[in-house]
Amino acid sequence: MTGFLDSRVLPAVALLMVATTAIDAGAQTCRGMPRGGGIGFVAGSEFLGSTYGVALSKGVFGAGFNSLSGNDRVTSWDANLRFTLAKGGALQWCPSIGFEFRNENMDVSDGSELTTRIGTAAAGLALGYEREAYKGISVIPFLGVDYQFTAIVFSLDTPDGNEGELSGDTLSRFIIQYGGLAKYKSFYAGFSADRFLESGVKRPYRARWILGFAFGGGSKSSRAAPVPRPPSVRASDRR
């Protein structure tokens, strides 16, 4: 039992320690959130309808929740969690892993309701760049590529109680995520889109707007330059 607990707890503790020590890395510029994190309202569209939700990031963690509207036959919600580490300065490159769960309910014409549960694990690499463009306004373009593995499970609620033959499925594919943020003081706004990296695909499958409040005020690039210390207090002059 102890060994079992160790095998599950130790990796989690290690992950938490890495995350805690890496919080200053401010990894989220690579994934469309301000450096240091923030919370935002998300509105967007995908093939099935309009989505609305919230996105939250702090340190190396990012999370979100979205619901679907504007579709007569399908209701849906999704939740996601991402763990991102950053390397570099103004230009960051960020390896990341994430997980998304999506639940869809669809009305079938015979009175049944089909529930589709979709779990997606993703791992990838992203680039983000933050630069002050004009008087405290910083722009943050970002671009990332993820490999996604998706598992789909169906369940059917039928009038006669007979479920029939319900299949699951798995998919694996590459996606590209791109977009940009503009940030001024504690406010930020931006755009993010996800697109399958396959030949023939002409449009993103999901596009979202975000308007939010950044944690920690202005970014490093938008802060005033530090005032130089007098020579008498420079550490290098102390002998």
Partner: peptide, 23 residues
Amino acid sequence: FSLLLVTSIFAVTAACEEITQPC
């Protein structure tokens, strides 16, 4: 400023449907 920014970004992305608008 944020409101102005959102409007501007919306205008730009609306003009670039192929990278900003799902089917």
